[in-house]
Structures are given as C-alpha cells and as structure tokens.
C-alpha cells in the first residue's frame, strides 16, 4: 500500500456542517512503546482549540478544525493543496487506559499518548539462581 497517497486525500465521509469545506484524512505515525502508544497526527493549520479527541466504544475519533486562512484581495496563482478539516478514526483495544490519554499540539502536529493499563505492561520476571 502506498501510504504517501494517504495524505490529504478526501475522506469519504461527508464534511461537517460547513459549506465548501474539505475533510482530509491526516497522516499519522503510530509508535508502540513499553507503556503505550504514541500517535503523531499531521494537522497543519489547526490550533489546540480546533481539536476534538473522542473515545467511544473503543473507537478513537480525532477531529481537527482548521483555522480558515483567506487571502482576501488575492487570487490563487498556483496551488498544491486545499485547506480543510481533518478526521480519522482508530479502533483501540481495551488495554488502553482511556482515563490517562493525553493530547498536545505543536507546529501543526497533534500528539496523543495512549498509555496501556498497568496489567497490560510487560512484566520482568527475575529468575533467581537457586
């Protein structure tokens, strides 16, 4: 699968109730650590007030509402991207401690820390010399 093609492709889902607004599937990196998962989601143009993270029935929904950046008084001379909102969903297993999920935003990247439940963390069993 060509993951590069995932970036900024239009979602099949209807856009939220905003006129002429695109909804894109943001690129994401998911890293599994000893204690949980780290997600980095690309949402250029979205600040922290525009982000909604919702976890319901094991489905993590990430929404990013972009700050419109209208160039009033200008016409488009060249374009490689459209501006729009972001939405993506992930299924999350029950080993994630839903209460401990943390989200932060910097430079257009939403970072989510999804810690595993204590019971799901690897345990080191020491073998004693008898």
């Amino acid at each position: 699968m060509n993951t590069a093609a995932l970036h900024k492709n239009e979602s099949t889902k209807p856009a939220p109730a905003t006129v002429n607004q695109y909804t894109f599937t943001p690129r994401v990196d998911i890293r599994e650590t000893e204690n949980g998962y780290n997600l980095e989601v690309e949402m250029p143009g979205v600040d922290k007030d525009g982000i909604d993270v919702n976890l319901e029935d094991g489905v993590l929904t990430i929404l990013g509402r972009v700050q419109p950046d209208n160039q009033d008084g200008f016409e488009k001379a060249y374009a490689e991207y459209e501006v729009g909102n972001y939405e993506r969903q992930f299924q999350i297993s029950e080993i994630i401690d839903e209460e401990q999920i943390e989200a932060s935003v910097k430079n257009g990247i939403l970072t989510l820390e999804l810690p595993k439940h204590a019971a799901a963390k690897p345990k080191r069993i020491e073998v004693k010399v008898g």
Binding site: S11, T25, K76, Y78, E80, Y81, Q89, F90, I92
Partner: peptide, 27 residues
C-alpha cells in the same frame, strides 16, 4: 491492538494534484 477503521483509510484519490506528495506543499 490499534487498527485504522476501513472508513478512515479508504477514499477516492483526488485528481489534478500530482504534486501532493512534495514536502512542503505550496500555494
């Protein structure tokens, strides 16, 4: 443990944006 839902990862590719994989993309 974590999976993208089908609805989140399938979509029609937009047309006329051949340079969309360049970084950074410009307007």
């Amino acid at each position: 443990l974590i999976n993208g839902l089908p609805g989140g990862t399938t979509f029609a590719a937009p047309e006329g944006r051949s340079r969309r994989d360049e970084f950074p993309r410009l307007n």
